[in-house]
Protein backbone atom coordinates (compact mmCIF):
# COMPACT_ATOMS: atom_id res chain seq x y z
CA UNK A 1 0.00 0.00 0.00
CA UNK A 2 2.79 2.39 0.96
CA UNK A 3 4.44 1.49 -2.32
CA UNK A 4 1.29 2.42 -4.25
CA UNK A 5 0.88 5.64 -2.34
CA UNK A 6 4.41 6.84 -2.97
CA UNK A 7 4.09 5.87 -6.63
CA UNK A 8 0.86 7.81 -6.93
CA UNK A 9 2.39 10.76 -5.10
CA UNK A 10 5.20 10.93 -7.66
CA UNK A 11 2.76 10.63 -10.55
CA UNK A 12 0.60 13.35 -9.07
CA UNK A 13 3.57 15.66 -8.71
CA UNK A 14 4.67 15.14 -12.30
CA UNK A 15 1.10 15.52 -13.58
CA UNK A 16 0.68 18.68 -11.56
CA UNK A 17 3.82 20.25 -13.01
CA UNK A 18 2.55 19.39 -16.46
CA UNK A 19 -0.89 20.82 -15.72
CA UNK A 20 0.45 24.12 -14.39
CA UNK A 21 2.72 24.40 -17.40
CA UNK A 22 -0.08 23.68 -19.87
CA UNK A 23 -2.37 26.09 -18.03
CA UNK A 24 0.18 28.88 -18.54
CA UNK A 25 0.14 28.21 -22.24
CA UNK A 26 -3.51 27.38 -22.72
CA UNK A 27 -5.20 29.38 -19.96
CA UNK A 28 -3.10 32.53 -19.82
CA UNK A 29 -1.84 32.80 -23.36
CA UNK A 30 -4.59 30.98 -25.23
CA UNK A 31 -2.07 28.78 -27.05
CA UNK A 32 -3.92 25.54 -27.82
CA UNK A 33 -0.88 23.36 -27.25
CA UNK A 34 -2.45 19.99 -27.99
CA UNK A 35 1.04 18.64 -28.56
CA UNK A 36 1.98 19.32 -24.97
CA UNK A 37 2.87 15.72 -24.27
CA UNK A 38 5.65 15.90 -26.89
CA UNK A 39 7.57 18.30 -24.70
CA UNK A 40 7.22 16.05 -21.69
CA UNK A 41 8.43 13.16 -23.84
CA UNK A 42 11.36 15.25 -25.08
CA UNK A 43 12.43 15.75 -21.47
CA UNK A 44 11.95 12.09 -20.63
CA UNK A 45 13.91 10.77 -23.62
CA UNK A 46 16.68 13.26 -23.03
CA UNK A 47 16.87 12.31 -19.38
CA UNK A 48 17.15 8.66 -20.41
CA UNK A 49 19.74 9.41 -23.08
CA UNK A 50 22.06 11.25 -20.71
CA UNK A 51 21.82 8.75 -17.86
CA UNK A 52 21.83 5.41 -19.65
CA UNK A 53 25.57 5.41 -20.03
CA UNK A 54 27.52 3.44 -22.61
CA UNK A 55 26.23 0.16 -23.96
CA UNK A 56 27.24 -2.44 -21.40
CA UNK A 57 25.83 -5.31 -23.39
CA UNK A 58 23.29 -6.14 -20.71
CA UNK A 59 20.37 -4.79 -22.68
CA UNK A 60 21.44 -5.82 -26.12
CA UNK A 61 18.08 -4.89 -27.65
CA UNK A 62 18.59 -1.26 -26.80
CA UNK A 63 20.21 1.57 -28.70
CA UNK A 64 22.46 3.78 -26.64
CA UNK A 65 22.47 7.20 -28.15
CA UNK A 66 24.81 9.38 -26.18
CA UNK A 67 26.52 7.01 -23.84
CA UNK A 68 26.61 9.67 -21.18
CA UNK A 69 25.94 9.07 -17.51
CA UNK A 70 25.54 12.47 -15.92
CA UNK A 71 25.32 12.72 -12.14
CA UNK A 72 22.09 13.83 -10.47
CA UNK A 73 20.63 16.50 -10.72
CA UNK A 74 22.18 17.40 -14.07
CA UNK A 75 19.94 15.06 -16.09
CA UNK A 76 16.88 16.88 -14.79
CA UNK A 77 18.28 20.22 -15.86
CA UNK A 78 19.14 18.80 -19.27
CA UNK A 79 15.61 17.39 -19.53
CA UNK A 80 14.13 20.81 -18.80
CA UNK A 81 16.48 22.35 -21.31
CA UNK A 82 15.45 19.81 -23.94
CA UNK A 83 11.78 20.63 -23.35
CA UNK A 84 12.64 24.30 -23.76
CA UNK A 85 14.65 23.85 -26.93
CA UNK A 86 12.01 21.69 -28.61
CA UNK A 87 9.39 24.25 -27.58
CA UNK A 88 11.44 27.06 -29.05
CA UNK A 89 11.69 25.30 -32.40
CA UNK A 90 8.02 24.30 -32.50
CA UNK A 91 6.95 27.69 -31.19
CA UNK A 92 8.85 29.61 -33.84
CA UNK A 93 6.91 27.71 -36.50
CA UNK A 94 3.44 27.52 -34.98
CA UNK A 95 3.08 30.67 -32.90
CA UNK A 96 2.63 32.93 -35.86
CA UNK A 97 -0.40 35.07 -36.32
CA UNK A 98 -2.47 32.05 -37.12
CA UNK A 99 -6.10 31.51 -36.27
CA UNK A 100 -6.34 29.62 -33.02
CA UNK A 101 -8.31 26.72 -34.48
CA UNK A 102 -5.72 26.16 -37.20
CA UNK A 103 -3.01 26.34 -34.58
CA UNK A 104 -4.86 23.71 -32.56
CA UNK A 105 -5.06 21.41 -35.59
CA UNK A 106 -1.35 21.74 -36.25
CA UNK A 107 -0.48 20.92 -32.65
CA UNK A 108 -2.78 17.90 -32.58
CA UNK A 109 -1.39 16.53 -35.81
CA UNK A 110 2.18 17.15 -34.69
CA UNK A 111 1.52 15.06 -31.59
CA UNK A 112 -0.03 12.24 -33.62
CA UNK A 113 2.77 12.19 -36.19
CA UNK A 114 5.59 12.53 -33.69
CA UNK A 115 4.52 9.42 -31.87
CA UNK A 116 4.12 7.49 -35.14
CA UNK A 117 7.61 8.39 -36.23
CA UNK A 118 9.24 7.69 -32.87
CA UNK A 119 7.42 4.36 -32.62
CA UNK A 120 8.46 3.26 -36.08
CA UNK A 121 12.02 4.50 -36.23
CA UNK A 122 14.14 2.15 -34.14
CA UNK A 123 17.22 4.31 -34.55
CA UNK A 124 15.67 7.27 -32.79
CA UNK A 125 14.69 6.11 -29.32
CA UNK A 126 14.45 2.40 -29.81
CA UNK A 127 11.08 2.58 -31.53
CA UNK A 128 7.96 1.30 -29.90
CA UNK A 129 9.89 -0.71 -27.30
CA UNK A 130 11.22 2.50 -25.88
CA UNK A 131 14.09 2.87 -23.49
CA UNK A 132 14.36 0.72 -20.39
CA UNK A 133 16.71 0.28 -17.44
CA UNK A 134 17.10 4.03 -17.06
CA UNK A 135 19.06 4.41 -13.81
CA UNK A 136 17.25 6.07 -10.94
CA UNK A 137 18.95 9.08 -9.43
CA UNK A 138 21.37 8.46 -6.54
CA UNK A 139 20.96 4.71 -6.78
CA UNK A 140 23.25 4.22 -3.78
CA UNK A 141 20.53 5.76 -1.64
CA UNK A 142 18.19 3.04 -2.79
CA UNK A 143 20.55 0.36 -1.49
CA UNK A 144 20.97 1.98 1.93
CA UNK A 145 17.34 2.97 2.47
CA UNK A 146 15.46 0.16 0.82
CA UNK A 147 13.02 0.58 -2.07
CA UNK A 148 10.02 1.70 0.00
CA UNK A 149 11.82 4.52 1.76
CA UNK A 150 13.63 5.51 -1.44
CA UNK A 151 10.27 5.92 -3.16
CA UNK A 152 9.11 8.28 -0.42
CA UNK A 153 12.33 10.28 -0.65
CA UNK A 154 11.74 10.59 -4.37
CA UNK A 155 8.15 11.66 -3.73
CA UNK A 156 9.35 14.29 -1.28
CA UNK A 157 11.83 15.56 -3.85
CA UNK A 158 9.05 15.83 -6.44
CA UNK A 159 6.88 17.61 -3.89
CA UNK A 160 9.67 20.10 -3.27
CA UNK A 161 9.91 20.82 -6.98
CA UNK A 162 6.13 21.24 -7.12
CA UNK A 163 6.28 23.82 -4.33
CA UNK A 164 8.99 25.62 -6.23
CA UNK A 165 6.88 25.50 -9.38
CA UNK A 166 3.86 26.80 -7.49
CA UNK A 167 5.87 29.77 -6.20
CA UNK A 168 7.03 30.48 -9.76
CA UNK A 169 3.58 30.07 -11.26
CA UNK A 170 1.96 32.29 -8.66
CA UNK A 171 4.51 35.06 -8.91
CA UNK A 172 4.25 34.97 -12.69
CA UNK A 173 0.48 34.83 -12.36
CA UNK A 174 0.39 38.18 -10.59
CA UNK A 175 2.73 39.93 -13.00
CA UNK A 176 2.20 42.48 -15.72
CA UNK A 177 3.63 39.88 -18.06
CA UNK A 178 0.77 37.51 -17.36
CA UNK A 179 -1.78 40.28 -17.81
CA UNK A 180 -0.23 41.19 -21.12
CA UNK A 181 -0.44 37.55 -22.18
CA UNK A 182 -4.13 37.44 -21.37
CA UNK A 183 -4.68 40.69 -23.25
CA UNK A 184 -2.94 39.27 -26.31
CA UNK A 185 -5.05 36.14 -25.96
CA UNK A 186 -8.30 38.11 -25.96
CA UNK A 187 -7.49 40.55 -28.73
CA UNK A 188 -4.20 40.39 -30.56
CA UNK A 189 -4.55 43.51 -32.72
CA UNK A 190 -5.76 45.43 -29.67
CA UNK A 191 -2.76 44.34 -27.61
CA UNK A 192 -0.40 45.22 -30.44
CA UNK A 193 -1.99 48.65 -30.73
CA UNK A 194 -1.07 49.26 -27.09
CA UNK A 195 2.61 48.56 -27.72
CA UNK A 196 2.73 44.93 -26.65
CA UNK A 197 4.39 42.32 -28.83
CA UNK A 198 2.25 39.18 -28.60
CA UNK A 199 4.67 37.04 -30.63
CA UNK A 200 7.47 37.47 -28.10
CA UNK A 201 5.17 37.09 -25.11
CA UNK A 202 3.70 33.86 -26.43
CA UNK A 203 7.06 32.41 -27.37
CA UNK A 204 8.27 33.10 -23.83
CA UNK A 205 5.37 31.36 -22.17
CA UNK A 206 5.63 28.51 -24.63
CA UNK A 207 9.28 27.91 -23.81
CA UNK A 208 8.78 28.23 -20.05
CA UNK A 209 5.90 25.77 -20.24
CA UNK A 210 8.01 23.46 -22.38
CA UNK A 211 10.83 23.53 -19.84
CA UNK A 212 8.49 22.61 -17.01
CA UNK A 213 7.04 19.86 -19.19
CA UNK A 214 10.53 18.53 -19.89
CA UNK A 215 11.33 18.61 -16.20
CA UNK A 216 8.20 16.63 -15.38
CA UNK A 217 9.14 14.11 -18.05
CA UNK A 218 12.59 13.75 -16.52
CA UNK A 219 11.11 13.23 -13.08
CA UNK A 220 8.78 10.56 -14.43
CA UNK A 221 11.40 8.59 -16.29
CA UNK A 222 13.83 8.84 -13.38
CA UNK A 223 11.18 7.20 -11.27
CA UNK A 224 9.77 4.52 -13.52
CA UNK A 225 13.11 3.80 -15.24
CA UNK A 226 11.51 3.33 -18.63
CA UNK A 227 9.92 5.40 -21.34
CA UNK A 228 8.20 4.36 -24.53
CA UNK A 229 5.61 5.71 -26.97
CA UNK A 230 2.95 4.04 -24.84
CA UNK A 231 3.58 6.70 -22.20
CA UNK A 232 2.88 9.67 -24.38
CA UNK A 233 -0.06 8.92 -26.64
CA UNK A 234 -1.49 12.16 -28.05
CA UNK A 235 -4.51 11.66 -25.83
CA UNK A 236 -2.40 12.13 -22.69
CA UNK A 237 -2.46 15.86 -23.39
CA UNK A 238 -6.23 15.72 -23.16
CA UNK A 239 -6.12 14.07 -19.76
CA UNK A 240 -4.05 17.03 -18.58
CA UNK A 241 -6.36 19.46 -20.34
CA UNK A 242 -9.53 17.88 -18.98
CA UNK A 243 -8.08 18.23 -15.50
CA UNK A 244 -7.39 21.91 -16.11
CA UNK A 245 -10.86 22.59 -17.50
CA UNK A 246 -12.56 20.63 -14.75
CA UNK A 247 -10.60 22.37 -12.00
CA UNK A 248 -10.76 25.83 -13.48
CA UNK A 249 -8.69 27.40 -16.23
CA UNK A 250 -6.22 30.00 -14.92
CA UNK A 251 -6.76 29.06 -11.30
CA UNK A 252 -3.68 27.37 -9.80
CA UNK A 253 -5.56 25.59 -7.04
CA UNK A 254 -8.38 24.69 -9.38
CA UNK A 255 -5.84 23.10 -11.72
CA UNK A 256 -4.48 21.15 -8.77
CA UNK A 257 -7.92 19.86 -7.82
CA UNK A 258 -8.85 19.01 -11.40
CA UNK A 259 -5.57 17.22 -12.00
CA UNK A 260 -6.05 15.20 -8.86
CA UNK A 261 -9.59 14.25 -9.81
CA UNK A 262 -8.87 13.27 -13.41
CA UNK A 263 -5.33 11.95 -13.37
CA UNK A 264 -5.17 10.42 -9.91
CA UNK A 265 -8.63 9.74 -8.53
CA UNK A 266 -9.89 8.55 -11.90
CA UNK A 267 -7.05 7.44 -14.18
CA UNK A 268 -4.45 6.03 -11.79
CA UNK A 269 -6.86 4.51 -9.38
CA UNK A 270 -8.75 2.68 -12.12
CA UNK A 271 -5.45 1.56 -13.58
CA UNK A 272 -4.03 0.32 -10.28
CA UNK A 273 -6.99 -0.95 -8.31
CA UNK A 274 -9.82 -1.78 -10.67
CA UNK A 275 -9.92 -5.43 -11.74
CA UNK A 276 -9.34 -5.82 -15.45
CA UNK A 277 -12.57 -6.37 -17.30
CA UNK A 278 -12.77 -8.12 -20.63
CA UNK A 279 -9.64 -8.43 -22.71
CA UNK A 280 -6.44 -6.63 -21.73
CA UNK A 281 -6.59 -3.00 -22.71
CA UNK A 282 -10.36 -2.68 -22.60
CA UNK A 283 -10.36 -0.75 -19.31
CA UNK A 284 -7.79 1.60 -20.72
CA UNK A 285 -9.85 2.33 -23.81
CA UNK A 286 -12.97 2.82 -21.71
CA UNK A 287 -11.11 5.22 -19.39
CA UNK A 288 -10.37 7.40 -22.41
CA UNK A 289 -14.00 7.28 -23.53
CA UNK A 290 -15.04 8.43 -20.06
CA UNK A 291 -12.45 11.24 -20.11
CA UNK A 292 -13.89 12.43 -23.41
CA UNK A 293 -17.39 12.36 -21.97
CA UNK A 294 -16.25 14.15 -18.80
CA UNK A 295 -14.58 16.79 -20.92
CA UNK A 296 -17.79 17.46 -22.87
CA UNK A 297 -19.81 17.47 -19.67
CA UNK A 298 -17.57 20.04 -17.99
CA UNK A 299 -17.63 22.24 -21.08
CA UNK A 300 -21.39 22.08 -21.04
CA UNK A 301 -22.25 22.24 -17.36
CA UNK A 302 -19.47 24.33 -15.86
CA UNK A 303 -17.18 25.74 -18.54
CA UNK A 304 -15.25 27.84 -16.03
CA UNK A 305 -14.53 24.84 -13.83
CA UNK A 306 -14.83 24.02 -10.15
CA UNK A 307 -12.77 27.01 -9.04
CA UNK A 308 -13.17 29.69 -11.70
CA UNK A 309 -10.43 32.18 -12.43
CA UNK A 310 -10.09 34.67 -9.60
CA UNK A 311 -11.32 38.11 -10.51
CA UNK A 312 -8.90 40.97 -9.98
CA UNK A 313 -10.77 43.25 -7.58
CA UNK A 314 -10.19 46.86 -6.72
CA UNK A 315 -13.65 47.70 -5.38
CA UNK A 316 -14.85 46.71 -1.95
CA UNK A 317 -17.71 44.26 -2.36
CA UNK A 318 -20.40 43.15 0.07
CA UNK A 319 -19.82 39.64 1.41
CA UNK A 320 -22.76 38.12 -0.41
CA UNK A 321 -21.23 39.07 -3.74
CA UNK A 322 -17.90 37.55 -2.82
CA UNK A 323 -19.70 34.33 -2.06
CA UNK A 324 -21.01 34.21 -5.58
CA UNK A 325 -17.40 34.14 -6.61
CA UNK A 326 -16.51 33.99 -10.22
CA UNK A 327 -19.56 35.52 -11.78
Amino acid sequence: MSYYLSTIAVYFGADLLAAWALNMQFGWAGVPNFAFIIFQAAGAYTYAAVTLGPDSGVNSFQHYILGANLPFPLPLLVAALAGGVVSLVVGLITLRRLRRDYQAAVFLLAAVIAIDVVSADVNLFNGSNGLAAVPQPVASLQNSLGLGAYQWVYAAFVALICVGALVLVRSLGRSGWQRALRAARDDEPGARALGLNPSILRLQVFVIGGMIAGLSGGLLVGFISAWSPGAWAYSETFAVLTGIILGGVSNDWGVLIGTFLIQIAFQEVTALFLPQIGYPGLTDALVWVVIGVLWLTVLFVRPRGILPEKRFRVLAVPRTRIWRGGR
Partner: peptide, 10 residues
Amino acid sequence: SVFDGLTVFE
Protein backbone atom coordinates in the same frame (compact mmCIF):
# COMPACT_ATOMS: atom_id res chain seq x y z
CA SER B 1 -11.27 46.34 -28.73
CA VAL B 2 -11.67 45.38 -25.09
CA PHE B 3 -9.87 42.47 -23.47
CA ASP B 4 -12.86 40.32 -22.54
CA GLY B 5 -11.08 38.17 -20.00
CA LEU B 6 -9.64 41.13 -18.11
CA THR B 7 -11.56 43.40 -15.77
CA VAL B 8 -12.06 47.01 -16.76
CA PHE B 9 -9.36 47.99 -14.28
CA GLU B 10 -6.96 45.43 -15.70
